[in-house]
Design a protein around this nucleic acid. Structure first.
Lengths: 176, 176, 176, 176
DNA sequence: CATGAATGAGTATTCATTCAT
DNA sequence: AATGAATGAATACTCATTCAT
């Protein structure tokens, strides 16, 4: 694996696990086994590295999620599969809520670049639901399901066990 | 207003507005017009100040929220009023999402003291809903409404306008 | 001697001896035996320390110079004494030219604050000459003597021995 | 223009404009559109590049200066023409004082190689004046005119307008 | 009970230089 | 002869915390 990739992987893991502000450049370079100046060759500032983390994570999330729901056939099944996806995700040992909402809590309100990336990822989830539900003529439910999506991630982080995600799924079933 | 109170007020405002990690002790003592050693007399560490912020905010939130819903009579009206409360809150210029979920994104996963306080506040909201809905025999909806509560705060922070909060309220109406 | 004074003294010595850019904050705090944060408490940035160096040096230079020439009585003697002052200064082991012109060569052209301080010190020398020569009705020579002043310092730095300063004094004698 | 030449040209411009220490190798290679290793092939260290800058600049300055004064016939006219040369130079938008004295303010006192180059250039100016004045039997004035030369450059840098250069010329006229 | 000077470990970032290709 | 990725040491600066008064 090449240098740049190693940096992004390590930073992604640490930003998610510990938060952006609590992760120092020194820890990133140490765990990525990379010289400090090498990191700065690829990412002129820590924020640039954050932006890449958000970009890559959004991309990967969308890809995995689409792959996951593609296994289902009806719109309703697909929509519910999204919550199974979250359930699986939330059961992982390193689950720590939503990558994007966590960052949103850390960056200043006036950081336009980062906040736009976050909003964009969220909008892609709304679009995903809308795309799924269109064939069934239930597009209007997209925003509601998206709210449950955020709730599952965020509330699932705070409480022990999987009940928030499961409850969100149950609510989604009612809606559909 | 006395010293300790001034510290807590200023810290609360800054922790919510800028985040915990982005708020330095120096800024707190400067804006509170307090000597550094005075702050450390009341709060031996920055985390102790954070804990007090969470405690006071939980208390004040619960108080205001209860006062707000007390103006309504039926359980259903009271439950929906919670979302009007969020709507009002979210329209304030300095709205920045949920005080507690924001902190949850900033502190290490293994910070038991802080995470417990956050969970406790969230549980108090679940109980509030449960208490409201009990007379109507709809206690089972408490967790669902609480999920919508979190969603309204968190999703309302990321997007422009009030549609997330309004959508959450609409979903609550359906449930009831 | 108190902390702040120690910082300024050490910084002054090093800025003059090694130059501003070649002197690191770390060297200053080490030689001043002061903690890094202490330095930054007194001087929020390295440039602020530079500004203080220029201020203090201008003040001290003016004071010593005035004290030195006060020992002479006629305007002509006083004016020439300025060059004896430089001669004495230039013979010191650590002589490294003009404190102010050295800095002028190091700071960006657009650093208004620093450049103004430098110009101001130079103007105070012009005024000094003007004040000395006024009683003799030779004020018009002030700028010419000031040019020789700068030349003595700057050319005296580049060459071995004291001939530049002595030549400057000889030229001053001719003018008077 | 070949690689080496491009490097020297860019470095010369930047060293003069921004100073030696404030000019990074990266800026040089970027503006010269040259690979980093190429620069280090021609100049094993940054100081080597500095040395070449001083060498080339000394050469070019002497050439232009001689060409400029050759247009005049008498020793006195030639000597004064030197100050017209400075006047022209000082009126250029990018005038920033004396190339050599600026560097002298930036390099450590014990950098023998660089300081010798600087002194050598200054001596070449003294020789130039001596050569000019010899036919008129005024060689003894060479050092005095050279002092005015340095003063014109250095004082002309600090103050607004051209008065220092003009005053230096006027003083030269008196001497001759 | 209050003060503010002092601290040491930490931050993000930049430097001139080297090396494998 | 030319490349550009990689390096380690240094840079200016900030942090939460302590201590003598």
């Amino acid at each position: 694996m090449d240098t740049r990739e190693r940096i992004v992987n390590v930073a992604s893991r640490l930003f998610y696990k510990q938060g952006y502000n609590s992760t120092g450049i020194n820890q990133v370079i140490k765990e990525a086994e990379v010289a400090k100046a090498s990191l700065y060759q690829y990412f002129p500032s820590k924020e640039d590295l954050l932006v890449e983390y958000l970009r890559v994570t959004a991309e990967n999330t969308e890809k995995s999620l689409r792959a996951f729901i593609d296994k289902y056939s009806t719109p309703e099944e697909k929509a519910l599969a999204v919550f199974d996806f979250i359930l699986k995700f939330s059961k992982q040992a390193d689950f720590n809520g939503c990558n994007f909402l966590n960052i949103a809590a850390e960056v200043p309100v006036d950081d336009a670049r980062v906040r736009q990336l976050i909003r964009r990822q969220k909008d892609s989830i709304r679009s995903l639901f809308a795309g799924i539900l269109k064939p069934a003529g239930k597009e209007k439910l997209a925003d509601e399901l998206y709210l449950l999506f955020d709730a599952a991630l965020v509330t699932g982080k705070v409480h022990e066990g999987s009940w928030p995600v499961k409850t969100a799924k149950k609510m989604a079933e009612k809606l559909l």
